[in-house]
Design a binder for these strands. Structure first.
Lengths: 224, 224
DNA sequence: TTATATTATAACCAGTGGTTAGTAACCAAT
DNA sequence: ATTGGTTACTAACCACTGGTTATAATATAA
């Protein structure tokens, strides 16, 4: 049972290699051109197989993306946890660092971000990648909310939720404004990072102000 | 030269009617199902013509959308101007009303909003609807920026621009979070309008705070 | 060597937005 | 009434998409 070591592989090796080639090709192309622009046939060409071979290993095009997204989301989550665990940093600064880091990461991984944002709360079975993505999404949201609570001294869970949601809108607004931007990320960041920071700073200061005024917002609403 | 008045039309009348039918069908379907989900063949069926007849009157599917979007954008612009001209309202309240109204309008017209957000600054000729859309987009941005200047007493044009941009991120974040939401708008608004208002309030208070602290943000940045 | 299982491709499918070719009907000139 | 030109309109066609089904190639076990 000696195989010719030049280029013959066992069936298992071939299938595993093909599977990996497909995923790597998809990763490369999605990162370069964005998920929607990339066709299955392009991925197949890059992977060196037929476009229909892809369906032997992955359910569909979207499934490819999900397989790529989970590790990235876990990386993001871990990155955020690392920031939170920095002991020499106060909560306010942690919160700002979290937001800034979130924006940068998501702009680096735009397809991932689109999946992150569209994974819905639909009822899916345990194996469905969307459920897993949704779980990480919730985890990330919780990390942000908790740090927000700490930084602003929030105690009402409903207020925490509203504040965190609003902060998420803000981050989402920044990221999604540039999600289809074709400019190199370095140029974009150089041009706009101070504006991104301004956005985060303003939102956090505003939330702190509302916390300080505790309930004044509702009164101003009544006076309409 | 007496035409049978029952149902025969001149060529001109027929073409005008077909053109209008196409536009109305597109409007109805885009509003119901969203631009991306609607096919040319669906529009044709609704309009009572062949799908290729559409290309006699409109350059492509996107052109249809642009023809529908311009009146809406002008309506939005006018609505904002009306708010700005309310004399019995202070600038701060105007600004909040502008933002709130912008969010509501855009959530009512989601396809319009997508076009508004993606009309790029690409070099296009004078007749191109994208240029016109971009012009209205700039106009709307200017209205917001001017009201922001008045409400916060801003005098540095670069600061005004940054603040307005940040405010736009925020509005965009709110709207785009729900742009694909299938829930009836009344339900959505009932559930979340206080959160939308919170988002706007926080951003405006934060920007005001930064204005008050004038430059403190840059110092805190240096202390990283 | 043969049979079987697995990897992989080719052929096929329904559908998309859009282009080109063809037809019917209107309209003006003779 | 006839003819030619123009226009409204449709049918046929195109390249392409994501995905399904049928077929071929190859490894492996008996």
């Amino acid at each position: 049972m000696v195989r010719d070591v030049i280029n013959l592989k066992s069936k298992q090796e071939r299938s595993e290699e093909t599977k990996k080639n497909i995923l790597n090709a998809a990763k490369k192309l999605f990162m370069t051109y964005g998920y929607e622009s990339v066709t299955i046939r392009q991925i197949a060409k890059e992977a060196g197989c037929s476009h229909t071979a892809i369906y032997l290993y992955y359910k569909d095009k979207e499934s490819l993306l999900h397989h790529l997204v989970m590790p990235l989301l876990q990386l993001l989550s871990q990155q955020m946890k690392n920031i939170i665990q920095l002991n020499e940093m106060d909560d306010w600064t942690k919160l700002k660092r979290l937001c800034s880091s979130f924006i940068t990461f998501c702009l680096h991984h735009k397809s991932m971000y689109s999946t992150f944002m569209t994974a819905s709360a639909s009822r899916v079975d345990e194996e469905d990648p969307r459920l897993q993505i949704n779980n990480v999404r919730i985890e990330i949201f919780q990390l942000l909310m908790q740090t927000l609570e700490n930084a602003l001294g929030l105690s009402d869970p409903r207020q925490s939720l509203a504040f965190a949601r609003v902060l998420f809108y803000n981050l989402h607004g920044v990221i999604s404004t540039y999600i289809d931007n074709k400019e190199p990320l370095e140029d974009l960041t150089e041009r706009l990072s101070s504006t991104f920071d301004l956005s985060v700073e303003a939102m956090l200061l505003g939330l702190r102000e509302i916390k300080k005024q505790g309930g004044k917002k509702d009164e101003s609403r009544t006076n309409f």
